[in-house]
Design a protein around this nucleic acid. Structure first.
Lengths: 150, 150
DNA sequence: ATACATTATATGTCTATACATTTAATAGAG
DNA sequence: CTCTATTAAATGTATAGACATATAATGTAT
């Protein structure tokens, strides 16, 4: 087990809270790097995958751009541009919302569903592999993270 | 306490391991957003701050670009460009390494040390505030994160 | 109905990550 | 010494995050 102190060659931290922030940023980088390797062959980014997953969760009900934004992991990400990129790839459709012409209805296409299903198997297995914890430990981690942000 | 399921409006996950990956990505976003607000008035990014911190840790001994890279939280970040930006701001000095002209010695300037010291107080207090856990819980979190990557 | 505020989306710009490639210097083999 | 491989740093280019601003449509007060 490589402790965060060794990984970034920092001998000590102000306190365990500051260490935890650094540890979380470093662990995030570990996860993102691991996930990127998984996604690369598919020509789709983790963020784009996440948008597809949100859309499928709607079960055929069109979703607006702002609704996608609300459900993204990173609230500062730009759903508008991600949707545009997915549209270029033919994985989503965009259409003007009839009852409010400011809004845009976004729907995942058949091709999008296909790509998503294929990717999901790999991603879900990958995520399990990346997290080297017991079931008990991972449940504890989830509770701690939820509390941390509170 | 807002659970990650509510925060991103996802009802369930494949398993607790997949939930943990999502939870970590989401918590990272929470921390980065919190930190950004802190850094903004100083015109310096968290990544640039981290480079300054690494340089000061050398206690006046010049550090090469690749050595900075090794110590960064994100191993894929571009130390060369971050150093260039810090140099433009007058916070670091760059000089050719005499015994190996491929390498570049990087040193933090007096101005860099001043900015770093000022920022560090805010960042360390902020990090403590962002992590809503007891001392016992945060120690446990650090252990779980170290093991997770193992 | 008009004026103004609000909302949804898109766009502009900067910073950083991700990763490939280039350039220059050094190390090592013959 | 010469050729080749390796290494350090810089650079090119794509994607995304951060945040301000623009544009268009809608809601609301008068």
């Amino acid at each position: 087990m490589v402790k965060v102190e060794e990984a970034i060659q920092q001998k000590q931290f102000k306190d365990p809270f500051n260490k935890a922030v650094v540890n979380l940023l470093y662990t995030n980088s570990y996860l993102v790097t691991s996930q990127n390797a998984l996604f690369k062959p598919y020509g789709i980014s983790p963020e784009q995958y996440n948008v597809l997953r949100i859309l499928r969760g709607q079960n055929g009900v069109p979703t607006t751009v702002s609704s996608i934004q609300d459900r993204m992991l990173n609230k500062m990400s730009n759903a508008s541009r991600l949707v545009e990129k997915l549209k270029v790839k033919g994985l989503v459709k965009r259409s003007e919302c009839p009852n409010d012409r400011r809004q845009v209805d976004v729907l995942i296409t058949e091709e999008g569903l296909k790509v998503l299903a294929e990717l999901q198997v790999k991603v879900e297995q990958g995520n399990k592999d990346f997290v080297n914890l017991t079931l008990e430990e991972v449940n504890l981690l989830n509770d701690l993270l939820d509390k941390l942000r509170g």
